[in-house]
Design a protein around this nucleic acid. Structure first.
Lengths: 200, 200
DNA sequence: ACCTTAAGTAATCGACTGATAACATGTCAA
DNA sequence: TTGACATGTTATCAGTCGATTACTTAAGGT
């Protein structure tokens, strides 16, 4: 029995479709990384055919680079929001907490963080490594706008990297009492652990 | 003209060959990660045929897991050496520096660090994610033996993750004056930058 | 010298991947 | 209404991958 519906297939503007595929790509690449995700996986996630995603972006590499830079842009924007919503005091513990919270909020939908992580750890693809360096520099420069000295900024970024790694290895979903990893997780995520489990 | 040498082909014990392939696997996986490295690439690096590496380890996954756990074991061992070579004072800045130096020494041959990083960022393969959690817990527990409080241990580990990421994106080879990434690199690696460029 | 065991390879397979080409159809201005 | 263009798909390809099978030959005890 084949489908009876002579379904009216409506089309999308190239711009909208591109955006949709970029979002699908973010989800897909977040899981498998660059090498571990096929263009077909992205296509299925987006609900289009595989050749079409290749045609939109040219190559898989170009698609990944765009997904990656958007993800990092999104993360940078979260910090910029904190810096711009009111004056930032470099010596205020409270303002530092606001900065940390901005990152914690990103944990809720961690696709961006994982895409960023995958970009950072793909040094064998020169174009990705280059983009990673540029983006990491951007993020560092953004955090520098807090007025903190370089060491404090460095520590903040380092802390973020730890959270990324913990997310990557699915630590929050595997907390067992007595496990040293659980100690690390609770002391790394802090209140963020609850955020991770809250609805939306 | 075919080769005249009826070359005497000598064989190796399975144990030795296994060790050799593990070392080759470490180099290969350090570059491409799990998904980005073929068993054939490992075989070529080891100078044996591709089916043979598969036969030694069963599957590519088993090979990677073994390479990964060895790498993390090596890193753990570096910390244990510091803890055991003489009594460790939790409050000594000097002893903390010794701990940091142990990691910096590992930068010299960073294959182990990169393999560790690749394991940490491959959360989509359940077996790898599981091994990553266990190994991260092990490392954390090892650092805890310093007597530091959990926050200090956490910060130490976080700092290590930053170094891993910087190595991964080839930051030390791409330092350009004026680039914010250069600021981050100099302030993250410190004296380690010289170590990275020293001969052996 | 022989023969069993173990080290190692060549040949090959089915599945998958990224990309290309050819084709189909919705959309919209004239 | 029509025709040109933009949005999409189906079919297909050459290359790569992990794995299996069958074969080869060095090593070593008797």
């Amino acid at each position: 029995m084949s489908t009876m519906k002579a379904e009216r297939v409506t089309r999308m503007s190239a711009e909208d479709r591109r955006e949709l595929v970029l979002q699908a790509g973010t989800r897909a690449f977040a899981h498998g990384g660059y090498h571990g995700t096929s263009t077909d996986a992205v296509a299925r996630e987006a609900g289009v055919s595989q050749p079409y995603v290749v045609r939109i972006f040219g190559t898989k590499l170009d698609l990944f680079l765009e997904v990656f830079e958007r993800a990092v842009g999104r993360i940078k924007a979260a910090f910029e929001d904190v810096l711009e919503e009111r004056s930032f005091d470099p010596d205020s513990e409270d303002d530092k907490a606001r900065m940390g919270l901005a990152y914690t909020e990103l944990l809720r939908d961690h696709d961006f963080l994982q895409v960023m992580m995958h970009g950072f750890s793909n040094g064998d693809v020169p174009e990705i490594a280059g983009a990673a360096r540029r983006c990491m520099g951007d993020v560092f420069a953004t955090i520098q706008r807090t007025g903190w000295d370089d060491e404090k900024v460095r520590d903040f970024v380092a802390y973020g990297m730890l959270l990324n790694v913990m997310i990557s290895m699915r630590a929050p979903e595997h907390l067992e009492p007595g496990d040293p990893l659980t100690t690390l997780a609770t002391c790394a995520f802090g209140d963020g652990l609850e955020v991770l489990q809250s609805p939306a």
